[in-house]
């Protein structure tokens, strides 16, 4: 027990205001860092503030953000999903293999229906992987870290097995067209799709009973069980969301490249987790916001594309994201320690 006897009412009220201020000031800090990075790249390269870079950066961001949104639910519930990148690869490959192997040459079914079937298949595969993750964690009580790491291996291997590691071109052109179409020249279709998912995620996490219980589960799992809530079903749902969004991200990845590749999701789990942590979620559960994750995804993406613009060799991208992830966790822990000492 922390506080002293007979804590004066005013002090506690001030503390509560402080608590809400932490959340707001954390997002303000993240936004400030994002702005600083953008200014830096603007100074370093004349190509940063261009339409071409906006279109490229925003589309790249949708893929990272979709994985980050699912990861936000998982991390708030005190879990982790390391399988999202491999799941993205597998979902894309399953959809791609079905479309090119069964539906092609698309004359009988049609391009657009084939694309829709492929999209449904990708989301379905992602969802299935997510449900398996959830079942392993909730019912077999395998730690999330181990269960999803194992599924990373399974999904990654399976996506190579489907085609002996070959990429699949020849997917319906409708997918490539939609994936690269910019509304009014400025708003890529994937951005619209992702914006809708963001709006739904904000609603679910902040307004619904499901969101409320996701926070509760991360904050005190025993209390949730004691309250008679089916924690296992809830956990499966959380990982199912993460998996389904990985499937959706796979379609966007397929659309951008007009092909399906078993390496489409390489290192994506690193980006997704970095996105959520930079956005202010706690790896110990119970804390995080969708808005923070959006800012986190923007930071990660701008770093990735900005480094290319200033002609840093691409391998530095992964190193940078790794360093930023560790730095973000370190800074948050320092803040927690200071708060605990208060």
């Amino acid at each position: 027990m922390t506080a002293t006897t007979a804590a004066p009412q005013t002090a506690t009220t001030r503390l509560s205001a402080y608590g809400t201020r932490i959340g707001r000031s954390r997002n303000a800090l993240t936004a400030g860092v994002l702005l600083a990075i953008c200014i830096l790249f603007t100074i370093l390269s004349p190509y940063f503030l261009t339409q071409a870079n906006w279109l490229n950066t925003s589309t790249t961001m949708t893929q990272i953000l979709l994985l980050g949104l699912g990861q936000t639910f998982v991390i708030i519930s005190r879990g982790i999903d390391l399988s999202v990148g491999a799941n993205l690869s597998l979902s894309g490959m399953v959809a791609g293999a079905f479309m090119t192997g069964v539906l092609a040459p698309y004359e009988s079914v049609g391009e657009v229906p084939s694309a829709l079937i492929g999209a449904a298949l990708a989301i379905g595969t992602g969802l299935l992987v997510g449900i398996i993750n959830g079942l392993l964690i909730a019912f077999l009580r395998i730690p999330a870290f181990v269960a999803t790491l194992g599924m990373l291996g399974v999904c990654s291997g399976a996506s190579y097995l489907l085609t002996n590691g070959q990429s699949l071109s020849g997917i319906p052109t409708a997918i490539g067209t939609a994936g690269n179409y910019n509304i009014l020249g400025w708003i890529p279709v994937p951005v619209i799709v992702t914006a809708i998912v963001v709006a739904v995620a904000i609603y679910v996490l902040s307004q619904t009973r499901f969101g409320e219980r996701t926070y509760m589960l991360g904050d005190n799992p025993d209390a949730v069980v004691r309250a008679g809530i089916n924690d296992r079903r809830h956990l499966v749902a959380v990982y199912a969301i993460s998996g389904a969004l990985a499937g959706l991200a796979a379609i966007i990845a397929m659309g951008r490249l007009a092909s399906a590749s078993p390496t489409a999701g390489a290192n994506a789990e690193l980006q997704a987790i970095a996105t959520v942590v930079i956005g202010g979620a706690s790896l110990y559960g119970g804390r995080g916001t969708i808005f923070g994750t959006v800012l986190g995804a923007a930071i990660v993406t701008v770093l990735l594309t900005g480094l290319i613009i200033i002609q840093v060799p691409p391998f530095w991208q992964v190193i940078t994201v790794g360093v930023v992830l560790i730095t973000a966790v370190f800074l948050d822990q320092q803040k927690e320690l200071r708060a605990a000492k208060r």
Binding site: S16, E212, Y215, M216, D219, N220, D222, A223, R226, A227, G286, R287
Partner: peptide
């Protein structure tokens, strides 16, 4: 059985 990071209402 309280959740420390949630408010009294929750």
């Amino acid at each position: 059985a309280l959740a420390p990071q949630r408010d009294v209402v929750s």
